[in-house]
Amino acid sequence: MAERPVLRVCALYPDLMNIYADRGNLLLLERRCAWRGLGFRLTGAGIGDAVDPDAHDLFYLGGGQDRDQVLCAHDLVEHKSAALHAAAARGAAILAVCGGYQLLGRSYELADQTIPGIGLLDLTTVRHEGPRLIGNVAIEVELPGLEGPRVLAGFENHAGRTELGARERPLGRVLRGHGNTGRSGAEGARRGHVVGTYLHGPLLPKNAWFADWLTATALGLDLPLDPLDDALEDAAHRSARRAAGV
């Protein structure tokens, strides 16, 4: 009998980078694994902790308050950057949301300082003097292993404007909402299994299908995964899309 796969998740700074109910994302992954008979193991990595690039299938990095984000940015560069680059290179999945997304890029420029990023994605973020980009958002994405475009719905709330480098592709196309800059029509960034996005809400409860894509991608399983009764998940997805006007 084949050994039961275990989704090994590393949550980065779960005590500091959790401002937009990031726990909900981890909860979706955990329960859906349990309902499918897959194992699930969650490890937290805080300030100063080393990360083993080979011990996890999926890394998660959420958003935080400004001060906490600065603390984590310096720690990320100093203690975790090499491990995350190595993990990405061997095909581990990485999901970074909001502040975490900004830290995967090259840097985040604030008025009085520049926060370093780990440069896993070719993007830079600048704090904008104008209003924060806040509201319900829906984007259209195309992902390997899934046929045709799909919709991700969520909520965004960010002061930073993120510009992608010439080689970097967005995660999706903005249908409603602001996205990376409020003007480009691009939202997030994806390179292989590394995904960054401004969509919280949290993202995975509103898009259970994307939680399944991440799980399958991280474990190297074929899609679709075993079906679950997703009546409430589908209703929540529709409700989030409707809130965004899609």
Binding site: G24, P205, D229, L232, E233, A236
Partner: peptide, 23 residues
Amino acid sequence: GTRAAEMALRLKYAGVPAGRIAV
């Protein structure tokens, strides 16, 4: 409420059996 389904989903993932939840 306007986001009834999200509330229901939260309860489901908190461990309330889906059969006990109505939207």
